[in-house]
Structures are given as structure tokens and as C-alpha cells.
Write a protein that binds this DNA or RNA. Structure first.
Length: 135
RNA sequence: GAUACAAGCCACCUUAUCGCUCCUGACAUUAAUCGUCAGGAGAGGAAAGUCCGGGCACCAUAGGGAAGCAUAGCGGUUAACGGCCGUCACACUGACUAAAACGUCAGCGUAGGACAAGUGCAACAGAAAGAAUGUACAGGUAAUGCUGUAGUGAAAUCAGGUAAACUCUAUGCGGUGAAAUGCCACGUACACUCGCUUUUGAGGGUUCCCGCCCGAUGUGGGAGGGUAGGCAGCUAGAUCGUGUCGGUAACGGCAGGGCCAGAUAAAUGAUAAGGGUCAUGACGAUUUUGUCAUGAUACAGAACCCGGCUUAUCGGCUUGUAUCUUUU
């Protein structure tokens, strides 16, 4: 397992890393920059308030009518983020906290393997995009 | 044993690793928090649709009339119901009798009050199903469908049918809905600005009218802002299963036992391995079945809580009935 990574960070996903403040969410959707990395639309914004990176995962109700399907996709994305988030933290420490929204834009229910490869790819791109935005 | 139907029940399992929410305990720490470790608990039969009925909460009492909506044999059940149970009537199906009718039994279905007030509607046939007209034969008259018979049809100036047609009758219904509601925190905040108004009342509440009620810590508009965080409500209840008694049954009484989700951008998951079950095919056997391969393993996610209804659903199990087959 990927337990022994560089920052000896645990693969947890506690409440503090989940984006739940309505204010920040509204700000994120209004001011945040975004890019597409199939099958996700990723919106991000640097924020000083949050103690750590915060993530929001969303699946459109229009594309997936049943709550069970939406829950399943969200759980798989959350799991993939949990196991791959060390990529974000292993960058330089001076980096400010990020608010990130992951919106699933695919039309079918994906397998976990598919999501994991795509998500780690999008995380690497996210780092590049953040640097670009900060300049 | 197989098939069909009906009723009831179950809703794939195990292990490992990494996670999520709540509770309890220990340790450490703080202004509060929070952290670590250990243990325990963690979606459904429909959680769904939100179609009925309640509990609970709040609102300025919710009274009368009209309107509107719902229900509709009778009795019971229940907190309540439009649900459920029983029963009567009617319709249909099957059996009994050689057959039909009638009858009896079984099953299944019924928006099953009133056409004794008014308005409307009525396929085909028929001249005509009311405000219009007339065929054949016979009778009659001053004259005329004036009268009878034939003919059509369930029904013909005599009425009847129809209320999943308006309508009438009886009964019931105040509204809102956990984004309710209360408290704390934050916000220069019962703040700013322009009107109106002070018990002879501005304005407002009730679908409408009358009436009633609220009303200076008032009320109508405007501009620009702030907050959108926490706690309570929030899960021990018309509760769950067991036994027993009453009742044809729905259901109810009593006894002793259990505690069974409480999330909030919304927990109950992900991955791997193995095993079930079902279907198809192949091989071996030809009585049960065995091995291998492939595929399938549903519908679907609590959001204040219950009782129903409706819809979705891979499969499996139990019981009953009917038919067929095998053995004794």
C-alpha cells in the first residue's frame, strides 16, 4: 500500500479536508479558475482561511437520476483522492491552501481503476495550473 | 418429482488491508477545541413515488354562509384513513344435473347512495328516442297520425336507460410543514431612508361574503449590506420479536425479554482473494448427480416519526390449491 510515502502522511480523509462552507463554495464557483481533464471539470482557488486543502466532489443529477449511482461515483472519486492526495502535499510547503471542486462530467458509471488513473493525472495537472495562476 | 396460481418470508457470504460517521472508556492537551489508542453500533422491503391518513410543532381561534375538494351497500377494525377484515347484492368464470333454465358450491371482480326535482346524453336499427315527422293495411272524420295493427328497438306522447354526465343527498375537511419551531454565536444591527398611522386605527390574517382577530417593540416600499455557523428538535416508539388469551378475520389484551442509523455538499465505502446461488455449454456417467468454462448476482440510499397505497425488483425458501408423472 502507499502508506510509506515521503511526508509519512496518513491516507485519511477527515472532515476538515472536505469543503462544506457555503461561503467558500460560492466564492470558488464565482472566482475560481478551472480546467477540463476528462472525465472531470476541476475548479480551484487559493484561500487563506482554510487550514488545509479542501475538496468538494459533485455528480450531476441530470446525468445520473438515481441517488445510488451518484453516491457510488462520489465514493469512488473520494477514495481515489484519499489515496492520491499526497501528490499535493509533497510539493513545497509555502504553498497556500487550495479549495478544489471536482465535478464529474462523464456519462457512464466508471470503474475504480479508470477513476484512479484519471484522477492522479488531473492532480499533477492541477499543480501545474496553480503555479501558472500564481505567477 | 415437475408445471401453474395464491399467500408469507429472505434480499449473497467470509477474510485481509486502507478509510468514513456516532457512542463509550483510557491517555495527553487546551481558553474552548482537538489528537492518539481500544471497544461497540452503523440503510430498505420498498429507505423510492410523495398518492391518502395520523402524531408532533407553529400561526393572528379556525364562528356562520357560499364555493371547493374528498368519500359513498351494511357492519367491524384503528390514533386515523380513501387502508384492512367480514358480510349482503349484482356481474363473470368453473364444477355438480343428459342438456337448458333455476338452484347449490367455489373462485374472481364491482367509483355498489339518488334519474320519485331540474338540465343534458344515447351507437346500430327505426319515419320518429321530442318539440319534429310519418311507411303499409284496416277503422274513423267536414278535415288532419285522429285510432288500432304491422314493422325497429332494451324502451315509442306512455314512459324507460344513463350520475368514472352536470346535479342532488349524507358525511368529513382551518392553514403551513423539520428550509416547522426554540436558543446561542456572528454581523456598526429591533440599524439607514421615503411614506402611512395612534384606539374615531394605517396596514394585515381567513379562497369569497359576513363576522372575528392582530395591530406602535406598528406597518408598506426603497437602496446598499451582513449572515447563511453551532446546539436543541433528533430518535424508546400507535417500537421490535417471543409466548399466551379473546375474535371467523382485520385486530386487540396480558406476561416476561431486547434497544435497533442519526448523516448535514450529507457517513455505512474502496481494493484484493476465496466461496455460495442461478443460467447456458462441454465432458464423464445415464438413478441421484460430479468436474470444467463462460455469464449473471436485481430494484434501489435513511434526512422529524409512524400506518397504508402505488410503482420497481436477479433470484431463493416455506405453505396451500389444481394438473401431470413416477414408486409402493
Amino acid at each position: 500500500m502507499s502508506q510509506d510515502n515521503t511526508n509519512n502522511l496518513k491516507n485519511t480523509f477527515p472532515k476538515t479536508e472536505r469543503l462544506h462552507s457555503k461561503k467558500i463554495i460560492q466564492e470558488l464557483f464565482q472566482k475560481g479558475s478551472f480546467f477540463y481533464s476528462y472525465p472531470f471539470k476541476v475548479i480551484f482557488l487559493t484561500s487563506e482561511e482554510a487550514p488545509s486543502h479542501q475538496v468538494l466532489i459533485s455528480v450531476s443529477k441530470r446525468k445520473f437520476k438515481n441517488a445510488v449511482d451518484r453516491n457510488l461515483i462520489k465514493r469512488r472519486i473520494r477514495e481515489a483522492y484519499r489515496l492520491n492526495k499526497h501528490v499535493l502535499y509533497s510539493e513545497q510547503e509555502a504553498q497556500p491552501s487550495l479549495s478544489i471542486a471536482y465535478i464529474y462530467t462523464g456519462k457512464e458509471i466508471p470503474t475504480y481503476q479508470f477513476i484512479e488513473t484519471k484522477l492522479s493525472k488531473s492532480l499533477r495537472r492541477l499543480i501545474v495550473e496553480v503555479e501558472k495562476a500564481n505567477r
